[in-house]
């Protein structure tokens, strides 16, 4: 197992902040168009983390208009330029698939208030380096559309496409 860790260590990045399900994150994703590269931002709620070590992926859900969009990011993919944690959410489970059925006000997540909650809350909010197994996963992030009710839609491009890299 030692040697396996050694290899995973070469893949795992330490510039990815720590976050868990329920947190709102902003993923700066490198998009290649022809030979130009730009950075796209994708901001949403983490509803799932799976895998460990180099294979870890996170699913980020956001509402684009009234259409739900989910993207799966390999956490240590070189396409990820940066991840910012913009909000810590207070949730009671690690997989938030129930959010898919909820709309509007019901789909809100309560924000974790500093100082309340677990003793560690402070540290968490600062986004410590990922001591825990953070992994990234193989496939280039796929976007998956979760239509509301039965409405299936195409994956939306982000409206605020961003700065040049």
């Amino acid at each position: 197992m030692d040697k396996l860790k050694l290899i995973e260590q070469t893949v795992i990045r330490d510039d990815i902040p720590h976050f868990t399900a329920g947190d709102t994150i902003n993923v700066h994703y490198r998009v290649r168009e022809g030979d130009k590269e730009r950075i796209q931002q994708y901001k949403g709620v983490v509803i799932n983390e799976r895998g460990s070590g180099a294979n870890k992926t996170v699913t980020v859900r956001k509402m684009s208009g009234n259409i739900g969009v989910e993207r799966i990011f390999p956490l240590y993919s070189p396409f990820i330029a940066k991840i910012e944690v913009s909000k810590k959410g207070k949730v009671r489970r690690s997989k938030l698939f129930y959010l898919r059925k909820l709309r509007g006000k019901a789909a809100r997540i309560q924000e974790k208030v500093k100082g309340q909650g677990p003793v560690q809350a402070d540290v968490d909010i600062d986004g410590q380096p990922p001591v825990q197994a953070e992994a990234e996963s193989p496939k280039p992030a796929q976007a998956e559309v979760k239509g509301q009710g039965s409405a299936q839609a195409e994956v939306k491009e982000q409206p605020p496409a961003a700065e040049e890299s």
Binding site: M1, K3, L4, I7, E8, T10, V11, G53, A54, N55, P74, Y76, S77, P78, F79, E136, S137, P138, K139, P140
Partner: peptide
């Protein structure tokens, strides 16, 4: 055989590998 994991290639694609 040590085990399996994945790495990223030059193009950023993730490849399953055996160590």
């Amino acid at each position: 055989k040590v085990g399996m994991t994945s790495v990223f290639d030059d193009l950023g694609r993730s490849i399953p590998v055996t160590v």
